[in-house]
Amino acid sequence: MTNSNQKPQNFLLPLDMVTVSPALERSVRQRGILVPAIGCGQLIIDGHQRIKAALQAGQSHVPVVDIQGEPGLLFAELNQHRALQPFEIVSVFSKVPDSKKGEFCLACNLSTSPQMLRLLDYLAAEYQNFEPQKFNGIPMNIWREIAHLKNFALIKWFVELEGTVSEKRMTASLLRQSDRKNSLPEVIEAKSAREAIDFLNSLVQPRRTAALTKFQNCISEIDIPSGISFKIDQTFDRPGMDFQLHVTRNSVKRFEQAAEIAEKIFAKVEEL
């Protein structure tokens, strides 16, 4: 291990994708780099944010500790304390030799399944074509869910989909289920994750969707008086309905009305 003051030129991560917080930029501008970056030969493998801040502050030379080993594996090892961003994983993955790719995935807490390796290969080639915010906004556990998709156009569609992380997680789960059922189309027209969820639900859960639709149609046909409300188990695992009645001394008849409503629903929705 050697220490030096270097003019860094080669980086394991693409420096344009690295973001620097204002606090770090201020600190490096005022005090310089306090903790040296780590290099492997001429390649910087850790400390990209500090170096980018230093370059932005006009500093051309930075302290670097040089260590020996496979750069990609060292990078994973040095970053065990934090969750790596998707662009970090895929950009380093593309530089790891094939014989070490499995080891790299395990060091990043990723599966070494053929599906995951196929996805990482695709993303390593394509990630710079995605909008960085959307690409990095997808946590690795969601990437895991969509790793089984062989249709890369759907992966591209999924990354660009508008929606919250939670909606995207749901979408990914439904994509996986739909793929298991061999019901996944080549193209999905939905523009948002919300739309995609509705569409995929009808593919993945046709029995439940049909039963729910039947129930909703039935409800819309019945005139339900105020003071009576009810709910059902949306997965239909528990049959029947939970009724809630508000009864005053003048509306005791609601018991009978509720019973009539229940009879009507049961007659039309046999799933209940």
């Binding site: 053929p114 298991r180 061999n182 993945v204 859960q205 046709p206 439940r208 997965t235 695992d237 799933e271």
Partner: peptide, 26 residues
């Protein structure tokens, strides 16, 4: 993992009250 092409997961499944995952109850 062991049977990547299996068809046994191709139905609709939902969690039951006992924690097991089963086909749509109806």
């Amino acid at each position: 993992k062991y049977h990547p092409d299996t068809q046994i997961l191709s139905e609709e499944f939902y969690p039951s009250e006992d924690g097991k995952i089963r086909y749509f109850r109806p």
